[in-house]
Design a protein around this nucleic acid. Structure first.
Lengths: 191, 191
DNA sequence: AACGATACGGAACGCTCGCCCCGGTTAGCA
DNA sequence: TGCTAACCGGGGCGAGCGTTCCGTATCGTT
């Protein structure tokens, strides 16, 4: 099962389709009609199906890269000597990504089976990032990686398609501080 | 334009449709086929359309009640003499609602025009609830009502369809504490 | 240059789902 | 009880969209 190299035009079209899909999914999420993607790539729908067996497979190919980028970023930051700042930085990055790309929430939900490996890998990377931050006391200890995933999902949904560019910052502040505070034993007096 | 009273069977069917729609939307969100709702109500699709001009109108009729309930709850809690606890209680209520009903996020997004009044009303109620909590120092001052909406949206999405019942609690803790902490001037030492 | 393999385009298919229509039924009233 | 207006059921239409098929064009090799 050695992969024969693609013909020149085939490779070119495949790349055009992927680029178009990236842009289209980023603009409108998973919902964009496949014909739109094909048109955007200057290609017929049949050509798309020559390279990707299904629309979902195409989406996976796109979101796989997104998830892998995020994972690489998490790993790079985890190597930092300031785990707290590393953790925060990752959240900032995620928020930035989500404001620019509408398909991030869908990618995080992970529709397909091919992405499960990528999600497992991301799980590992986040585990390190999170644990380090917790060891330094930058993140409350009872938080699990699964919680972080859910939080990422919620965060990306919260800022999805908002015209206010500072909303993401304020959401981020809430999530960051909420992750930080270890516990609230008693409401401190206000005066 | 006086509303003639419905015939007995008409009123009965209307109620059955509404009940079925409530249950179906709660289970599967806005995506459920209308025929499923009709079947669930023991009724033909035509009957549904006799009472609601469009599927979206039916969804609005259901989500309107949900939003109004939430609004009433917010208003009732706002009258409490402990604004901080009132605010927290509302969030808990929302989270509980979201775990039980999958359509809450959709309802919050508010697809239709009939719900804008309800959302405006909710806006007012939340404004009071939020401001009171801020005056007592229970919620950081820079948070706006729009932020609270976004946060509610994110929170409901984060806990949507999770098998872990305690996830909602932990998400809630993060959001609550994040809303509380006024600012993080410096990372306190950990020891 | 010519030929076989490969890839392309887009018309067409089938399925889903919102929505409408009409022949039959039922409720309410005299 | 009989009559009329209101209402019901469900078959069916049409649009949107994922997917396939096949005649044609293009590539790469001899």
């Amino acid at each position: 099962m050695t992969e024969r190299p693609l013909r020149a035009d085939a490779r070119r079209n495949r790349d055009k389709v992927l680029a178009a899909a990236r842009a289209a999914f980023a603009e409108s999420g998973f919902g964009v009609p496949l014909d739109d993607i094909a048109a955007r790539a200057g290609v017929g729908p049949g050509t798309v199906y020559r390279h990707f067996p299904t629309k979902e497979a195409l989406f996976e190919a796109v979101s796989l890269v997104r998830v892998q980028d995020l994972t690489a970023d998490a790993r790079a930051r985890a190597a930092s000597d300031d785990p707290g700042a590393a953790f925060d930085g990752f959240l900032v990055r995620l928020a930035g990504e989500a404001t620019a790309k509408r398909d991030i929430p869908d990618a995080l939900d992970g529709l397909g089976a091919a992405t499960v490996a990528a999600r497992a890998d991301m799980h590992d990377a986040l585990d390190v990032l999170l644990r380090r931050a917790q060891e330094v006391g930058a993140v409350r200890p009872e938080v699990r990686v699964a919680d972080l995933f859910a939080l990422m999902k919620g965060l990306t949904h919260a800022i999805r398609g908002s015209d206010d560019p500072e909303l993401a910052d304020r959401m981020l502040a809430v999530v960051r501080d909420g992750l930080h505070r270890p516990k609230v034993p008693e409401d401190p007096p206000f005066d």
